[in-house]
């Protein structure tokens, strides 16, 4: 448990009278790549969004890097600096250039000087293959490019956890590969990742653990091998028969 990066205990989340997460417990250790799969409405995105408190939990406890983020006294902004998040719809800041998108937060939070942030951003852009787009506006980029910028923007903060909320769901098919490639590289480098995705191929290849959710519960979890090749729960089998 010493290297537990994320620890979720008895998490419940209601939207009004609708119970979206019912008693979720989960441990993620350093360097693990956990992939959440499940039908829409199963609560996987909500679970992800609870981890960095974009959604407030109804009850239960979430501890990230030793900080109880469900505790009101925790400085959630400080914790979030270490949790990168990539959204389905990219959420790039449309009024800012790519480089400004990336440097805004670290410079404003005084984590990096302007020059440091810029140098770092350029290196990251090179890494995601977009060095020539530093001065472009988001509206001038393709979906795949936007998402790669969004990943680079998150990495600029030097996070030790990355959350991905259906990062390829809004992309045209031919652009999915370029985004997954960046994610795979991140995984190889040992980043702790929690990924909500429908990309079963990605999960097979990269996940250290696959979690199948349905109806607000974790129904089944295990290695990709276990979950995809020998699912035990009927609901998992049913779901996989539809997506594989």
């Amino acid at each position: 448990m010493a290297d537990s990066k994320i620890s979720v205990k008895n998490l419940r989340k209601n939207f009004g009278s609708l119970e979206v997460l019912k008693d979720i417990s989960l441990e993620v250790t350093e360097g693990e790549v956990v992939v959440l799969i499940g039908p829409s409405g199963s609560g996987k995105s909500t679970l992800l969004r609870c981890l960095n408190q974009l959604e407030k939990v109804t009850s239960g406890q979430i501890i990230i890097d030793g900080y109880d983020v469900t505790d009101k006294h925790t400085d959630i902004n400080k914790v979030r600096e270490n949790i990168g998040m990539v959204f389905q719809h990219f959420n790039l800041f449309n009024h800012l250039t790519v480089i400004k998108n990336m440097t805004l937060a670290p410079v404003h939070l005084k984590l990096l000087s302007k020059e440091e942030a810029k140098d770092k951003a350029l290196k990251l852009l090179e890494r995601v293959g977009l060095a020539d787009k530093a001065e472009a506006f988001p509206s001038q980029l393709s979906g795949g490019q936007k998402q790669r910028v969004a990943i680079a923007r998150a990495l600029e903060m030097n996070p030790d956890i990355m959350l991905f909320d259906e990062p390829t769901s809004a992309l045209d098919p031919e652009m999915v590969g370029e985004v997954l490639a960046v994610m795979k590289e991140l995984a190889r480098e040992g980043m702790t990742m929690v990924v909500v995705t429908h990309e079963i191929g990605f999960a097979r290849e990269v996940a250290s653990r696959v979690i199948f959710m349905e109806g607000g519960y974790i129904v089944e979890e295990g290695t990709p091998e276990e979950v995809f090749n020998n699912p035990k729960e009927p609901r998992t089998i049913d779901f996989l028969s539809k997506v594989l």
Partner: peptide, 10 residues
């Protein structure tokens, strides 16, 4: 847009 800002620690 707000969520992206908050997720970066702002």
């Amino acid at each position: 847009q707000m969520e992206a800002g908050r997720s970066l620690g702002l």
